[in-house]
């Protein structure tokens, strides 16, 4: 499968766009690292690529089909920077993780999810533990692309490397494409097969 961003532009203010005419093409065996400076709108770019936000102009296409026209389970899944902001605080983790495809035991083991966490509420888990659930949730069997938005900068390094080491093996085995947006160059050198450097319009 191919995920294409064709000339996407986006801005929150009139006249000033965060970015203009961004072009990215990723195939499902690739791992692309996007390096963007602070203030670029990394999270916004991720949300556009995963179909959460519509760009002002341009399109995101999955095998030629507009990502906003996809019904049901979306093969492009995103993992967010702050796990505590993307889970329903009133649901136990087993409710949260049951929303997409059934998650295989193998994935839970690989991410180091302990089974008694399933009965807990998000407030009873640490950020790192919650992020593991969020990653597992995005790894349903219909997932073809993962968009990762600085998913590990808030975690301690050991957890980071645990998660990335598992993810890299999993993605390679299932031929899932990865786009990781970050400002940490050592990380990208470690995990990406290809790098894209983006500059910003916006003066910080």
């Amino acid at each position: 499968m191919i995920l294409e961003a064709k000339g996407i532009s986006f801005g929150y203010k009139k006249d000033v766009n965060l970015f203009d005419q961004v072009q990215i093409t990723v195939e499902s065996h690739e791992r692309v690292g996007i390096i963007a400076p602070s203030g670029f709108g990394k999270t916004t770019l991720c949300q556009i690529l995963a179909g959460y936000i519509k760009p002002i102009s341009g399109q995101v296409l999955l095998d030629g089909k507009d990502i906003h026209k996809i019904q049901g389970y979306c093969p492009v899944q995103m993992i967010w920077q702050h796990p505590e902001k993307v889970v329903n605080p009133r649901l136990r983790m087993k409710g949260t993780i049951a929303e997409g495809d059934e998650i295989e035991e193998r994935i839970m083991d690989g991410l180091g999810i302990e089974r008694d966490w399933l009965n807990r509420f998000p407030g009873e888990l640490s950020g790192g533990e919650m992020q593991r659930f969020c990653i597992a949730r995005a790894l349903g069997k219909r997932t073809k692309f993962l968009i990762a938005d600085e998913i590990s900068t808030m975690l301690d390094l050991i957890t980071q490397s645990q998660i990335w080491n598992f993810l890299l093996a999993e993605l390679a085995e299932r031929k899932i494409g990865l786009i990781v947006v970050t400002h940490s160059t050592p990380l990208i050198e470690r995990i990406a097969t290809r790098q894209v450097v983006l500059a910003t319009n916006y003066d910080i």
């Binding site: 179909g51 899944q77 993307v86």
Partner: peptide, 11 residues
């Protein structure tokens, strides 16, 4: 809320 948008993307 993000978790509702995510639920939509999860089908």
């Amino acid at each position: 809320a993000n978790y509702i948008k995510i639920a939509e993307k999860l089908g």
